[in-house]
Amino acid sequence: MLRKIAGYILSPIHYIAFGFILLIFQPIQWLALKLGGYKSHKVSVDILNLCLIGAYYLLGNRVRFINRYDLPTDRPILFVSNHQSLYDIPPLIFFLRKHHAKFISKIELTKGIPSISFNLKHGGGANIDRKDSKQSIAEILKLAKRMRERNWSAVIFPEGTRAKSANIKPFSIGGIATIIKKVPDILVVPIAINNSWKVVQHGKFPLSTFHTMSWTVLEPIEPKGIEIEEIVSKAEDEIRNYLTSRPFH
């Protein structure tokens, strides 16, 4: 109850700060892209997402990114994660920044959202139309090509929707299979996201306060010589086992 009461007070402060950050970084991204190309634009996006993470703390929430593995930077990585809320994304972008992690996003998000839409259009990810399977596959294939040629990585949420507990939904194989087949030297790395759903447990207002959210890198999976179904099942099991051993209430 106290968290909810605090949410009524702190949510407007958070939203004002979050919105201001998005507005201020729209022209910054444009300028960075025009003057310095991809490299400068990426730096601006990294800083943008660091600032967005800072806005989480205005709610009294904390962010923990846990990685006990020495992940390579000389080969593409497919990060496979559960999905709990839109608050999942800025920490993934920022903390995985050295891996150039790109997202598979809904094409609707490429319009109307300051900074976010601009980055989705120009950042190199895949923007898919879920009603058009041919377009979706073509976009993922283009992303896979960029990953292979530029040594980029990608983040995929194979549940297809957001889950609010450790009882995550079965992972879809489709997008994962397409990328693995087209990027032969890829490494698959599961990430378990815990507690970000709590921020929006009452909806968009009030946001919930004083939670510790975590993003935990789990044991990497070397896909060579393993069937794709087994790779997906292993990633799903790693994430589910991690989350069931952590408090969700």
Rank of each mutant, 00 (worst) to 15 (best):
W152K: 09
T244M: 15
R150M: 13
W152C: 14
C51E: 05
I226A: 11
R240S: 08
D185M: 12
G175A: 07
V200T: 08
H249F: 15
N195G: 07
A235I: 00
F65A: 11
G7W: 02
H41P: 01
P72H: 14
T178R: 09
Q29K: 11
E108H: 12
T212P: 11
S196W: 04
S44I: 08
I173H: 11
M1V: 14
K34E: 12
E236V: 05
L23P: 08
I113H: 04
T161S: 04
L35W: 14
G160H: 13
S117E: 01
Q26I: 08
D74G: 03
P223A: 10
L143G: 04
P223C: 07
I228Y: 08
P158H: 02
I77G: 01
N67W: 03
H100F: 09
Q135H: 03
Y69A: 01
K131F: 10
R148K: 15
V45R: 09
N194K: 10
L243D: 02
S85E: 08
I137Y: 04
L22V: 06
S44C: 07
I16G: 00
T110I: 15
G36D: 06
V200N: 06
I21C: 02
S40A: 15
P184V: 07
P72N: 10
E230F: 02
A235T: 01
I193F: 03
A101P: 10
H83D: 01
L59K: 05
P72W: 13
R68N: 15
P90H: 09
A101S: 13
S115G: 03
K164T: 12
I128F: 06
I221F: 14
S11P: 12
I13T: 09
F171E: 07
N127A: 15
P72T: 10
L218Q: 03
I5W: 12
K182C: 11
V155G: 04
K102W: 00
T73G: 08
G125P: 00
H249V: 15
I186M: 09
N67Q: 00
A32F: 08
V43T: 15
P27F: 12
L35Q: 14
E229N: 15
Q84K: 03
V199F: 04
I21Y: 05
K98M: 01
V188Y: 02
T212F: 07
A235W: 03
F248Q: 05
I239Q: 05
Q135A: 00
Y57C: 08
L187K: 04
I186D: 00
P27N: 09
I77W: 02
G112E: 12
I179P: 00
C51H: 06
K102R: 09
K111I: 13
S245A: 10
W30D: 10
Y15D: 00
S245E: 11
D74V: 05
